[in-house]
Amino acid sequence: MRFLLLIISVLILCFSTASFAAEKEILIGLIPEENIFRQMDRYKPLSEYLTSRLGMKTRFTILSRYGDIIDRFITRNLDGAFFGAFTSVLAIEKLGVEPVVRPLNPDGTSSAEGYIFVRRDSNIKDIKDMKGKTIAFVDRATATGYIFALAYFKEHGIKNPLGYFREYYFTGSHDSALLSVLDGKADIGVAKNKIIKERFKKDPVMEQEILIIARSTALPDVTLCLSKKLDRSLKERIKDILLNMDKDPEGRKVLERLGALRFVAASKEDFSIVYNLLKKADIEIKTYKYR
């Protein structure tokens, strides 16, 4: 009988330890910025680094599409997510998340620009030539891949930007918008400069074939925002590890793989420029149908 009680006690202890361990896992979402295989390859070392430094399992999960991000944050009970400029604002407004850090790009900036681009041989030189053509956006819930372009067209006197084109569609990722134009599936593309530059670096032929027609102002780049439910001390630890990882040789390797020099602190105030952009695009964040 004693033996049986001992076994039961051990089993209970095991299960409670397991459930405790499960509770200790941190789950962070990633917006589908680029091809998911490439993106996972970039972020995997960071999850391993955080796991080892925090002493608790840290997992990254790529959210299927921009438009689902807020719903998925809630349903998957995420502890945080690397959001884009617009989705950060959306998450601040709808989920009360707190911007914590963002990566510093190799060019020394922590911002991103949106580009409107065409094939160099397309005979499209300006906004007038774009009338009646096909345009590829990234997603309705991206500042650099959609909203900036809406604001740009409206600023140039086009009251109904989507009606200005023969066809428009959303590619779901920034590199896909670039490839749509390169492959001749769309005449015009809208995407984030960082992803475009990365592709140009790997394949200089792409750079020769693409003409940038317009650029947005600098917008906050991908930002790690943490859930308001997460323990304050844990948030501070995560922030501290990320802000100091460039001082650690192992951390520097992880940053290199991520394509960043280091992490810098982020705050809600950084997003005032996004609110201005939304105003120019006539978008009311509370009622905007981003799905």
Partner: peptide
């Protein structure tokens, strides 16, 4: 009409 309509 020389609009993009390629299929891959």
């Amino acid at each position: 009409d020389s609009g993009a309509d390629m299929e891959l």
